[in-house]
Design a protein around this nucleic acid. Structure first.
Lengths: 96, 96
DNA sequence: TTGACATGCAAGTGGAAGCTTGCGTATTGT
DNA sequence: ACAATACGCAAGCTTCCACTTGCATGTCAA
C-alpha cells in the first residue's frame, strides 16, 4: 500500500476525491468531464487515469470492472491514519 | 498560507511533526539530533531547516525566537481541514 | 466481423522538489 | 574583543513527478 500522503499532495488528485465524494461509481470519462465542468481541472484522460492509479495504490479509490466500463469509488478509510497520527491534544474544542 | 497537503508529502517533514508532537519547543539542533536517534532520519541541518520552513508556511509549525535560539512548536489545527473535507459517511464506525 | 467506444501501457519531456555547498549574520560565553 | 554557537540565505545539482504522445487491448453494437 503506497503513500497516502503523497497521493494527497496533488491538487488534481484531491479534485478527483472531491468529485467521487459527491458521486460514486463514475467512469474515467465521467470523471474527466465533471472535473472540467465543476472543478476547473483541464487534465487529459491519460493524466486523470494516472492520478487514479496513484489513488488506488494508496487505497483511497477502488474500481470494479463491468464490461468495458470501470467504475470508481472513493474509500475514505485510509484518511483516518492522518487524524490518528497527530490528534488534537488537550483543547476544549478538539474531538477526533 | 501554503499547501498543507504538499507539506505532509515528505516523510522527513512527517518525522519532524512526529518529533514535535512528542516534545514541543525544540531547537533546530535538538530536532536534528532526535530525528537521527529516534526516527532514523539522517538529514543535514540545512535540509531539516528547509523542511521546517515548509511546515511553517503550511501553518503546521510555529517558531519563536529567544536570543540565539529558535524554538519550534507543532500546530495540529490545520490538519482538521483534511478530516472535514472528506468526512466518513454513514458508517457505524465513522466519527470525524 | 467490423467499427466505435472505453480503457491500458510505456517511453519521452519539462519543471519542480529536496539536498548540498559555501558563506553570512546574530548571540553568547570567557 | 574574540571565538564558538545557532541559525539564515542562496546558487547549483540531481532526482522525481506530472504530463504528453503514440499505440495496444478489450468490449459492445450493428
Amino acid at each position: 500500500m503506497a503513500d497516502i500522503y503523497r497521493a494527497l499532495a496533488d491538487p488534481t488528485r484531491r479534485a478527483v476525491l472531491d468529485e467521487l465524494y459527491e458521486r460514486d461509481r463514475q467512469t474515467l470519462f465521467e470523471l474527466c468531464g465533471r472535473l472540467a465542468m465543476k472543478h476547473g481541472v483541464a487534465s487529459s484522460r491519460q493524466a486523470v487515469s494516472q492520478h487514479i492509479a496513484v489513488l488506488e495504490e494508496a487505497g483511497l479509490v477502488r474500481a470494479e470492472r463491468e464490461g468495458r466500463y470501470r467504475f470508481h469509488t472513493i474509500d475514505t478509510a485510509p484518511l483516518r491514519e492522518i487524524a490518528e497520527r497527530w490528534p488534537a491534544r488537550g483543547r476544549k474544542d478538539g474531538q477526533t
